[in-house]
Write a protein that binds this DNA or RNA. Structure first.
Length: 848
RNA sequence: GCCGGAGUGGCGAAAUUGGUAUACGCACCAGACUCAAAAUCUGGCGAGGUCAAACUCAUGUCGGUUCGAGUCCGACCUCCGGCACCA
């Protein structure tokens, strides 16, 4: 009798309906408030995995929720379609990367549609198409004009397996972010984007988003930028007019400096040393360190500290003391000034180094002791013979520091820096760890760098009118390390835009993170042929209201896109600093490795992958999506479970069957309003309905999607327990029931939209949820309880409960508690010391 | 090593400001239906204790604050993630 729940039939029906009615296409002239809901665009590998499904299920839930709330929602999708795998496929199987990519896109688009994700397909974009990468090139030229894109020869991170350069972000930890191969250093001419120019803003603007981005992501970004305040100090060199500049954050420890240490790459080593056997020795040591560095970069363990005394002497500008200059392997040329003052007593690394080479360790900072009445002075800590086990790296109070003794570190840091500044041997400074973004890749499948080299005119940017610089149809994939484009004569050979003589094109392509740094602006105006986007149109949609993706991009994509936005702002294209108002980083989807107890991210190589298509076929897209959202909080790891998804199907089936059973009574002659003679059960159901609406609405705002599903199940359980029959139910019962069921269907729509549409129709509504539906509103009066069950504690232990009216006074509640039979048994014969009454909540009776 | 985050039933997990710990689901057990099974429905399900109750114990460990602690404070243990000589 009951109609069965056939997901396939329902899902096909509504996917067609949505497509035919262009249900999810957003327009700018819609007067309603906008909501830009964005998921990270996928690489078209060919197949969706469950991580994608989770990402899109979350995004789609929010998009639907906002639509039902009356927002004009833009929910676009596209393809991050440049990159290695297409090229690998070309090398291995002789396929054209373009064909491979387009086929993959077609297949994945089908998978997304079968999942019923509510994308606005009219805005679809793909990075590998000339109408997109033209604007990558345009942005590059704008940056080039402003000096934000520049070329330099420098040691770069080289992945030997993939024969290409990687950015610092992509070779974090000394291994390739994609293939895990150990990264080498190579000297190459490379294009860089001056992200360091924006280092301060990348840290400073964090305060604009700190409440709405995960703390974890912001911390990693802030660590990556590595802002550090300190001072440069110049040490004069004895018998020379040269100076050695060091960077320190602890100028207050300068009286404890017992050596200066230069990095092996420091240019002054060569200059300072007179030709001698010692010099040969030092230079040889430096060369050895440089050679060993690349290898050490990828070693897990830190190398043992090694150094050599150069025999050169430097003069401490504060104390006038003469100290030796060393070269050592633990000082980095890339940071600060490539030289440090060594203060063994107050820096762990210097301490370790000093111990190894028996350099003096001089304590100049004392802990501020609370027991100690007087400020410690030089005499008390004169005894340096007390063996130190560790450096004392905290701030404290200065001792043995001449006129500065007795000052607090934090004051001394400020005052000594300004002293150095006024006396011309130093300046306060801020340094950053972040390096410029190397974007040259020796690859075919990317956006060509729009630069031409002319023998007479030098480096000439391609004029804007000549964009895009198109990729050739084919290239030889030699794997030699040189870009495949270099072998395509038609591509390389061109004429100089300035002098019209023969010239050559740059043969590198850009990092694919360039494509993804601004793609969501293109969605706003995806077919614009005159500009990357019309700023007026983009300003209607951006910034992105909600961005959803994995946290693996915390310091790559997400820092690049923040940088890009700031550049676009400076180009006058956008008017804000931060592109994304709110960020959600979803957890991984894991599955058990067969035969073990280990849960690992799904992957082909581990054999623990689950195919979304098979899930949809077996259980339906609605159940798959419901399970994915229900099984864990969005930011947690999600453990795959076949029986979990079966549970999701059961729930949908139960709701569906219930709607079917009641549809005739509900859609034909359901009463329009509740009447006053509602049964207690009907009132209870209405109460639960309105409580659930309030909870679900709040949970959507806070992105607690798993508890939304739980709340809907709870409400449905009450509906199931509501013992009335379609043919005998009173009007007021029917009203309560219809209200509950319609609320469930509406609130289920963001999670399992096909089933919700179908049930909405069965409930007597035509035209689909988006037209006739709207998000239910909670009525606080109806949600209020008629009776409260108040727990009564004796000495903090639960002993009884009493039923009272919700408007009970404190005094009444207190009396009710003390007169409760069970409670009397506990308190008889004891002295009641205190009665704590928490209104509406609980009573605690303290006895002795 | 440093910096984050997290430890709650057999499992995924819930729990406004400190106020009924274990909602919801999975698994499991029992019953109904069935010749039988599956599906479905009903009930049970932290541990100890009891015929049943009462009661006792329980949110990683130990301590503290409080009338009252999963939640706050201190110390420790374990796991996960990030960074790795950044001066």
């Amino acid at each position: 009798m009951d109609e069965k729940y056939f997901p396939e039939k329902i899902e096909n029906k509504w996917q067609q309906h949505w497509e035919q009615t262009k249900a999810f296409e957003a327009t700018e002239d819609d007067p309603r408030p906008k909501f830009y809901c964005l998921e990270m665009l996928p690489y078209p590998s060919g197949f969706l995995h469950m991580g994608h499904v989770r990402n899109y299920a979350i995004g789609d839930a929010l998009a639907w929720y906002k639509r039902l709330q009356g927002f004009n929602v833009m929910h676009p999708i596209g393809w991050d379609s440049f990159g290695q795998p297409a090229e690998q496929a070309a090398i291995k199987r002789g396929i054209n990367p373009r064909d491979w990519t387009e086929e993959n896109i077609a297949h994945m688009r089908g998978q997304m549609k079968r999942l019923g994700i509510s994308y606005d397909w009219s805005r679809e974009i793909a990075a590998h198409r000339p109408d997109y990468y033209k604007w990558d090139q345009w942005f590059f030229l704008k940056m080039f004009e402003r000096g934000l894109a520049y070329k330099k020869k420098s040691p770069v991170n080289w992945c030997p397996k993939e024969s290409t350069v990687l950015s610092n972000e992509q070779s974090s930890g000394g291994v390739c972010w994609r293939c895990g191969a150990e990264v080498e250093k190579r000297d190459l001419e490379q294009w860089f984007l001056r992200i360091t120019e924006y280092a301060e803003q990348l840290v400073g603007d964090i305060k604009q988003i700190e409440t709405s981005w995960p703390e974890k992501v912001l911390k990693r970004q802030s660590d990556w930028v590595g802002r550090s305040e300190g001072a440069y100090i110049d040490f004069a060199v004895r018998d020379s007019d040269r100076k050695i500049r060091v960077f320190t954050t602890r100028i207050d420890t300068i009286f404890g400096a017992t050596a200066l240490v230069l990095s092996a790459e420091h240019p002054l080593i060569e200059e300072l040393l007179p030709a001698s056997a010692l010099k040969n020795h030092v230079m040889a040591f430096a060369a050895k360190v440089i050679a060993g560095k690349a290898a050490r970069d990828r070693a897990d363990e830190e190398a043992e500290k090694e150094g050599i005394n150069t025999g050169v002497l430097a003069i401490n500008p504060f104390s006038g003391e003469t100290i030796p200059v060393w070269v050592a392997n633990y000082v980095l040329m890339e940071y600060g000034s490539g030289a440090v003052m060594s203060v063994p007593a107050h820096d762990e690394r210097d301490f370790e180094f000093a111990q190894k080479y028996s350099l003096p360790i001089r304590r100049v900072i004392e802990r501020i002791s609370h027991e100690q009445e007087s400020i410690p002075h030089d005499a008390t800590s004169e005894d340096q013979s007390i063996a130190m086990q560790h450096a004392f790296t905290d701030e404290g109070i200065l001792v043995n520091s001449g006129d500065w003794s007795g000052k607090l570190s934090k004051d001394a840091i400020r005052e000594m820096a300004s002293y150095a500044e006024t006396h011309g041997f130093g300046q306060t400074a801020v340094t950053y760890r972040i390096r410029d973004w190397g974007i040259s890749r020796q690859r075919f499948w990317g956006a060509p760098v729009p630069i031409i080299y002319c023998e007479d005119c030098g480096m000439v940017p391609v004029p804007e009118k000549d964009l895009p610089v198109r990729l050739p149809e084919r290239a030889e994939f030699t794997g030699s390390g040189e870009s495949p484009l270099a072998g395509v004569a038609d591509f390389v050979n061109t004429t100089c835009p300035k002098c019209n003589r023969p010239a050559r094109r740059d043969t590198d392509t850009m990092d694919t993170f360039v494509d993804s740094s601004w793609y969501f602006f293109r969605y706003c105006d995806p077919r614009n042929e005159k500009a990357a986007f019309d700023p007026a149109i983009a300003s209607k949609w951006t910034p992105v209201d909600q961005y959803i993706g994995g946290d693996s991009h915390a310091v790559m994509h997400l820092i690049y896109t923040r940088f890009w936005t700031k550049v676009m702002r400076d180009l006058g294209l956008v008017s804000f600093d931060e592109p994304v108002k709110r960020l959600l980083t979803q957890g991984m989807v894991t599955n058990r490795i067969e035969g073990t107890d280990e849960w690992k991210a799904m992957s082909k190589s581990l054999g623990n992958g689950v195919d979304p298509d098979e899930m949809v076929q077996a259980f339906g897209a609605d159940a798959a999506r419901l399970f994915v959202l229900f099984a864990a909080p969005v930011e947690n790891e999600l453990r795959w479970s076949e029986s979990g998804i079966e549970g999701a199907v059961r729930f949908l089936r139960r709701v569906y069957t219930m709607v079917w059973r009641w549809q005739e009574r509900l859609s034909n002659d359901a009463p329009a309003t509740a009447n006053d003679e509602s049964s207690a059960a009907a009132r209870a159901l209405r109460r639960k309905t309105h409580q659930t609406i309030a909870k679900v609405t709040n949970d959507f705002e806070e992105l607690h999607l798993n508890t939304i599903v739980a709340a809907l199940m709870e409400l449905f359980n009450e509906v199931s327990a509501f013992e009335v029959q379609p043919n005998t139910a009173s009007d007021s019962d029917v009203f309560a029931l219809r209200e509950a069921l319609e609320s469930i269907v509406l609130m289920l729509a963001p999670i399992s939209p096909h089933a919700a549409e179908e049930m909405w129709e069965h409930l007597g509504h035509s035209g689909g949820l988006l037209n006739s539906g709207s998000w239910p509103l909670a009525d606080a009066a109806l949600a209020k309880r008629e009776e409260l069950e108040i727990p009564i504690q004796v000495n903090g232990k639960l002993r009884s409960r009493v039923l009272v009216a919700p408007d009970v006074t404190e005094e009444e509640l207190r009396t009710a508690a003390l007169n409760d039979e069970k409670i009397r048994a506990f308190i008889d014969g004891h002295e009641v010391v205190k009665v704590i009454v928490v209104p509406q909540r609980l009573v605690n009776i303290v006895i002795r």
